[in-house]
């Protein structure tokens, strides 16, 4: 199992701020969240807290001097759909889509939906460092740079361990889909929980 490297517990508060619209600033990256991210689900398939996932993504984006906006997509649980819809709302045209189980994609609004800039299909291999690098690369694309893709990792023993659980997580997430629902802008707050 991936070492989550988390010693202090952070909790995540996501407050809805109404329907999300297109972004005005060209120096932003949108993070598109799946229906149950940080809600029904609290951690990825390898137990990385969603608070930490989001924190690393945001840190990766912000360390490049780029602005981040977080939007939840309740309309579907397909990663390509979420990432592509997020890219269309992004002022730079760049977005990161992330599913509750940790599968992640960087998308660009002018690409066809089934294409992408970078895809990280194996959720069990996504650790904190990988999420930080995804955020960083997304920001660099937004600045018009051509970063080296985050090295893709491959583990041929991931299937026997995680495939069925991934299917269950996907089905469960799909239960939270509200067909036709508008994307919602989120306020993100992290709080340090009491040790316990």
């Amino acid at each position: 199992m991936a070492d989550t490297g988390v010693s202090t517990r952070r909790t995540l508060r996501l407050d809805e701020r109404g329907t999300a619209g297109p972004g005005g600033r060209s120096d932003e990256v949108v993070i598109g969240l799946s229906p149950a991210f940080g809600d029904f689900f609290t951690k990825t398939i390898v137990d990385i807290p969603h608070a930490e996932v989001l924190r690393e993504l945001l840190a990766g984006i912000e360390e490049q001097g780029v602005h981040a906006r977080v939007i939840r997509f309740r309309g579907g649980s397909d990663l390509a759909v979420i990432a592509h819809a997020a890219a269309k709302l992004s002022g730079s045209g760049i977005a990161v889509g992330v599913l509750s189980r940790g599968t992640t994609m960087i998308h660009q609004k002018d690409l066809v939906r089934l294409s992408n800039l970078e895809l990280f299909p194996q959720a069990p291999l996504m650790d904190l460092d990988a999420f930080r690098k995804v955020g960083r690369n997304a920001a660099r694309y937004a600045k018009g740079e051509s970063p080296e893709p985050v090295p893709a990792r491959n583990d041929f023993m991931a299937r026997p361990r995680w495939q069925a659980k991934a299917a269950l997580l996907h089905i469960k997430e799909t239960e939270f889909v509200v067909p036709g629902a508008d994307p919602v802008e989120l306020d993100v707050r992290f709080q340090l929980a009491d040790a316990g």
Partner: peptide, 14 residues
């Protein structure tokens, strides 16, 4: 014990 095992869930085809 590194292999994954899940409960049946016939309603969704598992």
């Amino acid at each position: 014990n590194l292999d994954g095992f899940v409960e049946e869930w016939p309603e969704v085809g598992m």
